[in-house]
Design a protein around this nucleic acid. Structure first.
Lengths: 229, 229
DNA sequence: CAAGCATGATAGTATTACTACTCCAAATCA
DNA sequence: TGATTTGGAGTAGTAATACTATCATGCTTG
């Protein structure tokens, strides 16, 4: 059986839905690979058009500009990850185990999901690690936020926050801890491979050190503290 | 008495030392204000030249490109903050108090330091919060790292890591905790003002909520754990 | 068959990111 | 003092970027 996961995207992110046409899917696929290869700064629609086998104008028919395309891809990722998490913790009752699984999904390398042919999830994961924050670190955050472009990220954050609260119902900062967990997972991963002296993971091949660190920080913060006298 | 703090910068960050000439200082001053005002993406040397009262070529004589200027300003900030921290925890012996002070320096608004006339530190602090990560989230990280452009950040991180170790000598991840602390402080601040639903601070005027959160996370992680059986 | 839509091809503009060259005035030296 | 070097500042030009607009074509759907 072949399962086709169609992720519902905010309609304002694109001019024409890229999921519905062959060219659109080609643009998404090439876009992911090209941004990963040359970085978002060097990435242009002209270069994308070449690798996607179309013209510059062809790409502009789907996306208003490259920032919207980034927002699209990052949103797509958060939606996908949210789904992965809900799938992965399904039927688990212990909050502790849920949190451990989430941390692994955030920090460990992603296996490509065959159910969406046109998006390479493992490459997209690396893009989000490397460039994800650029989606909101702009002067148009407020405007983009009003267009609900960050809803998938907020939903994910809210889901994880809820699970943290299951573990400790008295937790004072569930959302901040949740957004911090997500960002730190990515940042430590980036540091490990690019600026290793900012971490304690050295040059080990696997990312279990990051998992250990995140578990340490998160579970410490989740311990119930005695009320102050 | 007037104290002139001259911060020693990596010579490869600039073509001509901007601290040594009036125009150079003007470029730094206008640069900080302009990047803060319009954001790094919209920022160009042409616009900077106008506000700094020179020509585009004039700016290019000091900095190779705008990324180098950002690296310069961010480095300047980390150097300055490192100095502030060492000054502020001077003569304090309790590690706990040191850490509390550091957290406040990281999260609370910065008062402009009068000892450097040409850099507005409180504005620069906001730039680092908003755009700081763009200094290293590029495809040239490795190259920039080889040029030692991130040394001030690493030094700061290492200093804070050392203090965390003073508090708990068995701490397993001092550098990761340190870099996480710095980045989370900035990110939560950014979220609070731009994407508040990713935090638990609401719309309070002051940033003490962020301080509380950071103290919670850091001191929890610093508690000595009993050895596993 | 006609209408309509998706794509492709071409061209054009304003801005960006630089580079190269020129000019001028102050400092240096014979 | 006069000649010369040197550095700071301006002008102009180029290639690339980020779009926008127009028109032709071919394929589908009613």
């Amino acid at each position: 059986m072949e399962l086709h996961l169609q992720i519902k995207m905010n309609g304002r992110l694109f001019l024409k839905d890229p999921q519905l046409t062959v060219l659109g899917q080609q643009i998404l696929q090439s876009g992911v690979l090209l941004i990963h290869e040359i970085g978002f700064e060097q990435f242009t629609f002209k270069k994308l058009a070449e690798t996607a086998g179309t013209t510059e104008a062809g790409v502009y028919r789907y996306f208003e500009n490259k920032h919207r395309l980034l927002l699209y891809l990052v949103s797509w990722y958060w939606n996908w990850l949210d789904y992965q998490i809900s799938y992965c913790i399904n039927n688990i009752s212990q909050p502790e185990l849920k949190i451990r699984r989430i941390i692994r999904l955030l920090a460990l390398p992603v296996k490509d999901d065959q159910s969406t042919s046109y998006i390479n999830e493992s490459v997209l994961h690396e893009i989000v690690v490397e460039q994800g924050t650029k989606a909101y670190l702009t002067k148009q955050v407020t405007e983009d936020n009003q267009h609900q472009f960050f809803k998938p990220y907020k939903d994910l954050c809210s889901r994880i926050g809820g699970i943290l609260l299951e573990y400790n119902t008295e937790l004072k900062f569930p959302r901040s801890l949740s957004s911090s967990l997500i960002e730190i997972a990515h940042l430590q991963k980036y540091f490990k491979y690019n600026l290793p002296s900012l971490t304690d993971f050295g040059t080990t091949d696997n990312d279990t050190g990051i998992v250990d660190f995140l578990e340490e920080v998160v579970f410490s913060s989740l311990i119930k503290k005695p009320a102050k006298p």
